[in-house]
Amino acid sequence: MLYYLAKRLLLMIPLLVGITVITFTVIHLAPGEPVEMQVAMNPKVSAEARERLRKFYELDKPLHVQYAKWVSRLVRLDFGRSFAPDGRPVITKIRERLPVTISLNLIVLILEFALAIPIGIMAATHRDGPLDRWTTVFVFLGFATPLFWLSLILMYLFGVKLDWLPISGLHSLGYEAHGFWWRVGDMAKHLVIPLGVATFGSLAGLSRYMRTGMIEVLGQDYIMTARAKGLPERVVIYRHALRNALLPAITILGLSIPALIGGSVIFESIFAIPGMGKLFMDGVMARDYPLVMGVLVIGAVLTLLGNLLADLAYAIADPRIRHGRERAL
């Protein structure tokens, strides 16, 4: 196990280097400069002032020098200072926003697993029946709907027309004055629509995967044996088949992280949720290079970590890998 872990960690190093190279290249492909944004809106700015801003941001140095400087700082976890006029460290800005995005995405992941797995199993056990067909259409519908469209419709319906739910943000104004449970309830009300829509949109992948896995497992000999022994169907499915069908689903967990983080841009814009997606979008629009690069790197590293965790979980859960590696050691 230790050997496996060490190997996985070592393998991450070239990936990390690759991530920084791609990030840097992508950002520096673009024409235009952050200075333009700041200066352009104001006519009272002289050409000399622009040069001054360029120097200040070190944009006058050659690219490889900029890259080297950036990476050497990255190693020390220094993401540089934002190009935005407040000039705050990028890491501070990300730290402010990251928890919101991560916790919301975690909730979505949990909801997704809680719903998609039963749906997948149901589809598999009722294979080709109407239940299978209609759950298929249902989960695909979630995938196929433009989520911002659905969100705005629900927002209008429940927020404006029926006035049941708040429209946007995370809290009501003045929530600080209330007790803990009131605040939890308040936040839950704010999150019903965004989390619901996000979960609806994410069901397809996992539930289809579950269905396939389940069908495959149900065709295996040992299930036949279990059935032949006269075990009740419920026991066969949930005790024997599910265990094995669930295993591959763990890897899906790691794979779905980038999609979730990416999707947060839209949700955070619509629902005015102060997360990393919105931060990234603002950074991109303002050509805040250090911020954009910082978020890209952190987003990628998070995915890397997610994958690592998923693989480790898989290794722990699957005795073949666990034992195989230990013997090799």
């Binding site: 705005l152 927002m155 209008y156 404006v160 429209i167 946007s168 104004l173 619509i270 102060p274 979008m281």
Partner: peptide, 18 residues
């Protein structure tokens, strides 16, 4: 000052009293 990035959302917030 509430920061609401989307114009459609902002208008709905106004109507809902936010």
């Amino acid at each position: 000052y509430r920061i609401i990035p989307d114009t459609a959302t902002m208008y709905m917030e106004l109507k809902a009293g936010g």
